[in-house]
């Protein structure tokens, strides 16, 4: 990563922008989202902003980054996607970066505990659901149908965020699913379903949206406790290692703004 020459009036302008962003982050999300539009960072010539984003955010982060770059000429946003835990360990091990968007609180906690992400904020929610082959040929109606041991059910392995959610869901619904495979990432689960190897699998609703019709959603069913267990929060934080904390804070603010939130909503995410 290259550090670029500063604008001669940089420090003064940065101070102004910084105050603006800090206000953004500390206030309530709705109010700050309104403020965000008037808070474009204007001292950002040729800044490179590295955003570490969870794999499930891949597509939507590209959209948000493009919008952010349009609002802030001179900022080049680079998205580094990966499993949340892999990203967390990379950041803790000293990988350069400005923003971390995690798919679960635990991995954000790892970075936070390392003192690198002091102010995480929830920016989106996701919900675990059942992915089946298009048309739901086997007629699954809900989680209770997945306990048949002859089925090839795939889920995420327990330490992976989606695996933790799956376990919580099973517990809340009081069912015991015997998966044929515990995949290492939710994308693998989706791939096993879309390739016809497995049916069904437990994925996030945003994964169904990303599959472009190759997988279909079947609601989990069950009571409210299942629905609560199926939900997961996505936290985001600017990192203390950010080369330009103002730009990093501005990006976080942008994700929380109306513009960012509507992009997330289009991708199937819920608002926090």
């Amino acid at each position: 990563m290259t550090r670029v020459l500063k604008h001669p009036h940089g420090s003064r302008m940065r101070a102004r922008a910084s105050a603006c962003v800090r206000a953004l982050v500390r206030g309530s999300v709705a109010m700050l989202a309104l403020a965000a539009a008037g808070c474009a960072v204007d001292d950002t010539s040729d800044d490179v902003l590295i955003v570490h984003a969870a794999a499930s955010l891949t597509d939507v982060m590209d959209v948000i980054a493009a919008d952010f770059e349009a609002n802030n000429p001179g900022v080049d946003v680079q998205i580094n996607v990966g499993g949340s835990s892999a990203l967390a360990s990379q950041i803790v091990e000293g990988a350069p970066g400005d923003v971390f968007a995690s798919a679960d609180l635990a991995q954000m906690g790892v970075v936070h505990d390392a003192g690198l992400a002091p102010h995480p904020l929830a920016f989106a929610t996701n919900t675990l659901t059942i992915a089946v082959a298009p048309g739901n040929p086997r007629g699954f109606a809900g989680l209770a149908d997945l306990t048949d041991p002859s089925l090839d059910v795939v889920v995420c392995a327990a330490p992976v965020p989606c695996g933790e959610v799956a376990l919580a869901v099973e517990k809340a619904a009081g069912v015991d699913i015997q998966p044929v495979s515990e995949e290492l990432s939710v994308t693998e689960v989706l791939a096993k379903v879309t390739s016809g190897q497995a049916d069904p699998g437990l994925v996030y609703v945003t994964d169904i949206a990303r599959s472009k019709g190759e997988a279909e959603e079947v609601p989990l069913g069950g009571d409210e406790s299942v629905a609560i267990a199926a939900g997961t929060q996505y936290p985001i934080a600017s990192l203390t290692t950010a080369t330009d904390p103002i730009v990093a804070d501005a990006f976080v603010g942008f994700v929380l703004s109306d513009s960012g939130q509507s992009a997330l909503e289009n991708a199937g995410f819920g608002s926090p």
């Binding site: 499993g83 835990s85 360990s89 392995a157 327990a158 515990e182 693998e188 791939a191 497995a198």
Partner: peptide
């Protein structure tokens, strides 16, 4: 293996897959 066979303890989760998985939980 990951793409083709899956990952289940004792059935398809070989050492490299286990390492990758453990990295999530217990480095």
């Amino acid at each position: 293996t990951l793409t083709f066979a899956g990952s289940l303890q004792g059935v398809t989760r070989t050492v490299p897959l286990e390492i990758y998985l453990q990295r999530e939980a217990d480095a």
